[in-house]
Design a protein around this nucleic acid. Structure first.
Length: 628
RNA sequence: GGCCUCAUAGUUCAAUGGAUAGAACGAAAGUUUCCUAAACUUUAAAUGCAGGUUCGAUUCCUGCUGGGGCUACCA
């Protein structure tokens, strides 16, 4: 069906042709919602048209308004300064509403050719998922859902960082602790077990690094092996020579070198090299421990309700990356330093030199990302590739895109880093060393437990079986959590206040869910009392009824907008507003005590509202309950 | 130092360059013989600072102040 703005745009273009003898482009017309302080269903902003009309704002508005009321759909108008407020006829809204009511796919965009691949989650296998990953997963699956709803061909993937020094640290610590704990004999979730050994490793590392640091700062280098001695001596003298203002940074630099110079780090790096050369024992251990981690991740993903069309593993792609590095060397895009390390010089692009292969031949993050990029393109041939990764990696993706471009990869242009802000706690940043990281599983459990507690307190569980109840708590708890994370513009940091996040009132997921459940309750009663819903002409629309229809009419545009902006918050906010408006409608008007016509009309409106609330929530990965 | 990013009621968030800047929480007051009060109604309360572009700036540009990030042979 033709959209209101389209109809009005055409009419206004005609008016300008006839009245002012000028051609204006329909795209230049700005229609906006009418401000609450004025009467109208939709507003045309006439300021931009003054140069065509050559009249004052009021006169221009009057002229356009006088012509528009000739249309059946425009009932009346008023002009305030440069704003032409139009009142649209009930007949139009009635016809329009019947159209969208009959459309099962209302809100969904037309199918598009464009193919998009969305990568999100991307965990490391050395520790469990935390709140930061939760934001990533929730955003990633929401963006995928929105693009799908907007009509794009969407695929999702996960890139698991399953190899590298971090997992070797856990492996080493596990071996040193006797190599006997398993998820089975400890009862721990696999990722938790492996993560605990990562923590163990860090403790041992700390224990070795601290005395070494003290010695070195006292200029005693006897415990440093000769390969590292020179660098460390240099760093220490830079530290002592520096001004006060720079001392902290330079001390950190020394610390980093010291950490790398500890015996336990040497062991970890040896293990990594063994891994890269295919040492069977190391590989077996690696497989075993990663397997535990995947079992653990599966539980978390399932609890979060996210999934992927394809999972990539760095262990399968880093070699491809090494080949690409070779290719780059051959093409003269990359260069080798004396120590054998490979770099790209991006100083011409305003960036720095970037390492692609270590001196010992092992690969870094960038190396495997190059390989993965090629592989993904072979698999999906996508037009656009969205990486949902935190904003601390903006530089990385800038470099990745540049390198791929220099290598002549045509798909490089389609690479888009969906960069989102970090999650902070009221106490500040999450820091694993300080134990302030919010664990994903714990968080989910806590949300569900709070949902349970509140629901029981409200005494609403009489009609539920225990299975239904458990399901309800899960829907509410996750709805609260996801809504809390999605309602904020992705580019912004989120302040995660545990207290607030589990609020179930106000601007929250449960508010929307409650509105939906209310509607279902209405509809249950309706079908009990009446045979079937008669979708008649909607007559005598009350202001709130019309407002509700207008709000519903904006759903498809909102989905489209959220897709073009890649911003789930736009859709989430709209759904909340619709629910809020519905609650107002619900309290202002009686559905069952105002005559049969009104009952049918208001149930039709209720049913449609419910469909949109559900559809919108589902798109971004949330669920709604039939009763709560 | 360089690059990127953010700054709006007491707090957490909104506002395709458009009207008198919206919500929620918190604060104050009210609504339940009637469809689910996890709701609704009312009150008080905000654009960091200084310029510029524009008919019009919270939005775009410049500078400043403040927070965060990046600038690793970590990922």
């Amino acid at each position: 069906m033709e959209n209101l703005k389209t109809i009005l745009s055409k009419a206004v273009v005609d008016i300008f042709k006839q009245k002012f003898d000028t051609e204006i482009a329909a795209e230049n017309l700005t229609f906006s919602d009418t401000s609450k302080n004025f009467e109208g269903d939709i507003t045309l902003v006439v300021f931009p048209l003054l140069r065509y009309s050559k009249l004052k704002p009021e006169a221009t508005g009057e002229t356009i308004g006088n012509e528009l009321v000739q249309l059946d759909i425009v009932e009346s108008f008023n002009v305030v300064k440069g704003f032409l407020n139009l009142i649209i006829s009930d007949t139009y809204w009635s016809t329009y509403f019947k159209g969208i009511f009959a459309n099962d796919d209302f809100g969904k965009g037309v199918q598009k050719e464009k193919k998009v691949l969305i990568e999100y989650s991307s965990p490391n296998t050395n520790k469990p998922l935390h709140l930061g990953h939760v934001r990533n997963n929730v955003l990633g699956s929401a963006v995928a859902g929105i693009l799908k709803a907007a009509g794009y061909q969407v695929h999702t993937c996960n890139l698991v960082n399953d190899r590298g020094i971090h997992i070797c640290k856990s492996m080493l610590a596990w071996e040193k602790a006797g190599a006997k704990d398993t998820p089975d004999n400890t009862g721990l979730k696999g990722d938790k077990l492996v993560g605990s050994y990562y923590v163990e490793f860090e403790k041992s590392l700390q224990a070795q690094a601290q005395p070494l640091m003290e010695k070195v700062l006292a200029k005693d280098f006897s415990d440093i092996n000769k390969d590292e001695k020179q660098k460390i001596q240099d760093a220490v003298s830079r530290y002592y020579d520096a001004d006060e203002s720079k001392k902290a940074d330079l001390k950190d630099a020394v610390k980093t070198l010291i950490r790398n110079a500890t015996p336990i780090m040497h062991e970890a790096r040896e293990m990594l090299q063994k891994w890269e050369t295919g040492d069977r024992e190391v590989l077996a251990l690696w497989n075993k421990m990663n397997g535990w981690v995947y079992d653990g991740f599966d539980v978390t993903y399932k609890a979060l309700g996210v999934s992927f069309d394809k999972t990539y593993y760095e262990s399968n792609t880093y070699l491809l990356g090494k080949n690409i590095v070779e290719e780059g060397l051959t093409k003269g895009i990359l260069f080798k330093k004396e120590d054998g390390s490979v770099w790209i010089d991006l100083t011409d692009e305003g960036l720095d030199q970037k390492l692609l292969l270590r001196a010992d031949g092992t690969s870094v993050y960038m190396t495997q990302d190059l390989g993965t990029a090629d592989l993904r393109y072979q698999d999906f041939k996508m037009d656009q590739s969205v990486y949902v990764v935190g904003n601390e990696q903006e530089y990385h993706f800038q470099v990745l895109k540049l390198i791929l471009k220099k290598l002549g990869r045509t798909y490089a242009d389609g690479i888009y880093h969906f960069s989102y802000g970090m999650v902070d706690l009221p106490s500040g940043k999450m820091k694993s060393r300080e134990g302030t990281v919010v664990d994903a599983d714990d968080l989910i459990d806590e949300m569900i437990a709070t949902a349970k507690k509140n629901t029981i307190e409200l005494g609403k569980m009489d009609e539920f079986t225990s299975e239904e109840a458990g399901n309800l708590y899960r829907i509410i708890g996750l709805g609260a959590l996801k809504f809390y994370l999605l309602r904020v513009d992705p580019v912004k940091r989120i302040l995660f206040n545990p207290q607030e996040s589990i609020d179930l009132q106000g601007y929250t997921g449960p508010f929307v869910q409650y509105s939906y459940a209310r509607i279902q309750s209405i509809m249950r009663r309706f079908y009990k009392d009446y045979q079937e819903l008669q979708v008649q002409n909607l007559q005598d629309l009350k202001p709130i009824e019309k407002e509700l229809i207008i709000k519903m009419s904006q759903y498809p545009d909102t989905v489209e907008f959220a897709a073009s902006e890649l911003n789930p918050a736009k859709l989430v906010d709209y759904i909340y507003e619709l629910a809020k408006l519905y609650n107002k409608f619900y309290s202002e008007l009686s559905i069952f005590n105002d005559g049969d016509d009104n009952t049918h009309k208001r149930c039709t409106l209720s049913l449609m509202t419910g469909r949109i609330l559900k559809s919108g929530f589902n798109i971004v990965g949330m669920d709604v309950p039939d009763r709560m």
